[in-house]
Simulated assay, not measured.
Amino acid sequence: MADVKYYDVILKPVITEKSMAGMGEKKYTFLVHPEANKSQIKEAVEKMFEGTKVKSVNTQNCEGKNRRRGMVVGKTAKTKKAIVQLTEESKDIEIFAGL
C-alpha cells in the first residue's frame, strides 16, 4: 500500500437518512480511502476530531455501478465506507452538528 497519511484516509462524510439516524447512537459514516484499514481509520478520526475516542470501526467495500451512455458501457469507481462508533464519554463530531 502507498504511504497514506491520516489526513488522506477520510475523504468525506456520508449524509443520508440512515447515517443521520445512527448519529443518536454516536455512529458516524465516512467515505474513506479504498486501501485504508480499520486501525488507520481509527487513528485518523481520533487525530482529526479532538476529544473523540473510537470504540469500533466497521467497513464496507462498495462496487461501482454499471453505467451506459449511448452504446458505451462502463462502471463508476469503487468506494469504501466506514461506520465509526464512538465511546459514550467521547465528544460528538462537529461537522455533523448543524445537520
Rank of each mutant, 00 (worst) to 15 (best):
10 I>K: 03
57 V>H: 10
75 K>H: 15
75 K>D: 12
64 G>S: 10
91 K>V: 07
79 T>P: 00
75 K>C: 14
38 K>A: 10
38 K>Q: 11
71 M>E: 09
59 T>M: 11
48 M>L: 14
62 C>Q: 10
13 P>T: 13
9 V>N: 00
88 E>H: 12
92 D>K: 15
84 V>C: 14
80 K>C: 08
85 Q>P: 01
86 L>A: 11
49 F>H: 07
65 K>L: 10
34 P>M: 13
88 E>I: 12
74 G>L: 11
43 E>Y: 13
65 K>F: 00
9 V>T: 02
34 P>L: 14
78 K>F: 09
84 V>G: 13
27 K>S: 11
22 G>W: 03
44 A>K: 01
63 E>H: 06
77 A>W: 07
60 Q>V: 06
2 A>F: 03
93 I>Y: 06
60 Q>C: 04
96 F>A: 13
20 M>L: 15
43 E>D: 12
4 V>Q: 12
20 M>Y: 03
97 A>H: 13
51 G>S: 10
80 K>F: 05
33 H>N: 09
20 M>A: 15
27 K>C: 13
16 T>W: 00
69 R>E: 02
9 V>A: 04
31 L>G: 02
43 E>A: 14
4 V>E: 05
40 Q>N: 07
48 M>S: 13
23 M>R: 13
84 V>H: 13
46 E>M: 08
69 R>A: 09
29 T>F: 13
69 R>G: 04
11 L>P: 00
91 K>T: 10
72 V>K: 15
28 Y>D: 03
10 I>F: 01
42 K>L: 03
60 Q>L: 10
98 G>W: 05
